[in-house]
Design a protein around this nucleic acid. Structure first.
Lengths: 226, 226
DNA sequence: TTTCTTGTGTGATATTCATCACACTTTCAT
DNA sequence: ATGAAAGTGTGATGAATATCACACAAGAAA
């Protein structure tokens, strides 16, 4: 394990913020800080899960093999845990995580994490709140996506990326079109066509991988109509 | 609140099994046991959530208004909590719950539930495990359903009901075809056609609302092919 | 650079499925 | 029991989108 200072880490999770000094000391001894490059696999579906992963910086995709191809389940931006369900719901990873931008990840021994839950109620509570919020977010998306058509879902995703991940109408699009297809549940070609449409109607603009949302209103309309 | 005995309740959640005697006493004073008939609304999307709901007996559907119609997010069978994410993830219910068979539900004051989490680490841990397992289940379904076609999804659901809810190849189907459509994300008519097909090819048999799975192998094949 | 791989744009075609329409059946309340 | 309401079966049609096919572009590696 590399030596690092958890207590003064500027990227603490809301759960970690309630840890006591002695707990930080144990944490430092039982966690490892690792750097990943864009495209690197962080953990793999099917492998044994012995660590909880905390995304300190960067962006990660959570994905899983579906019946015909890969399905991207969620995009996680720092700071956030991203391996809790797969660690405590099943011994074997039920999904993979891959870095889609350079990231730093803190791996926390799952026995230690479990002890924090058992011994620090506030820590447990914060973990529960995070799990609950994620689940609500997922539900919202399921409900939307199963009833919208492709342009609507793509529009929703673009807005979501702009708002919650990059917090700017202009950003470097972190996925290939194929990945975006795996995320929204469609084909690569359909994504390409939808993006071309948006681009032709000046709703968005592409400069290489940089995307700018020009008409947010139109995007929102398309997203809502379905 | 009706007087009832929680400590000796035969339908305890795995979290409740680790409560201490004094905690049971508080629980009895801050929980209410309510009976619902098939079709009754248990709590409603948009309302303030002040209780955690525990399904003691029966079956419940969790559903949410989508862009064009209702979406059924999950079917919950007793014993299980079913209002945790909406209670701790957001003050306002993000989904509704409706009884699809006669049920008994135990409502637990959410402040009390929170105190159990804060003060009883084992309780918190069990809650976390349940949340994690649910999330993994949702992911699995999400990955499958976004890549399968309608017959495959319907087949999957029938197998799931038979296996995990009724634990028998013959059971009284608890949903209307319209509801099954809202669950798998398709139209009522498509569900009707798929069920007719299955019935014609002697894969399943209907007697009124009673369904029997005749050829489980075929169903599984259809489910896997997508 | 050149070459190789990976990603992208776009037409033509086929398929799945939603929608509309309407008859029929079951359930429920009066 | 009788009528109204809710649920179901099934054809005809059209729309959305997957798939196939291929050209082209961009990036990585030699």
């Amino acid at each position: 394990m590399n030596t690092h200072n958890c207590k003064d880490c500027p990227f603490k999770s809301s759960a970690e913020k309630v840890l006591h000094d002695d707990e930080f000391m144990v944490l430092e001894e039982n966690s490892a800080l690792v750097t990943f490059k864009k495209g690197d696999l962080i953990f793999k579906e099917g492998a044994l899960s012995t660590n909880v992963a905390f995304l300190r910086t960067g962006i990660v995709k959570i994905h899983k093999q579906g019946p015909t191809k890969e399905k991207i389940l969620r995009i996680v931006k720092a700071p956030s845990y991203f391996g809790i369900p797969t660690t405590f719901g099943n011994k074997i990873n039920q999904y993979s995580a891959t870095s889609i931008e350079d990231t730093t990840v803190c791996f926390i021994d799952s026995t230690l994490f479990r002890n924090f839950i058992l011994e620090n109620g506030k820590f447990a509570y914060e973990v529960i709140v995070e799990l609950c919020q994620n689940e609500l977010q997922d539900y919202e998306r399921y409900a939307n996506q199963s009833q919208k058509q492709i342009p609507g879902i793509v529009a929703e995703r673009l807005i979501c990326m702009s708002d919650t991940i990059f917090k700017s109408p202009r950003f470097i699009f972190p996925l290939t079109q194929g990945e975006l297809a795996d995320l929204v549940g469609t084909s690569r070609e359909s994504v390409s066509r939808v993006l071309s449409d948006f681009s032709n109607s000046k709703i968005i603009e592409f400069k290489g991988k940089e995307i700018t949302i020009l008409k947010r209103d139109s995007l929102e309309q398309i997203s809502q109509k379905g």
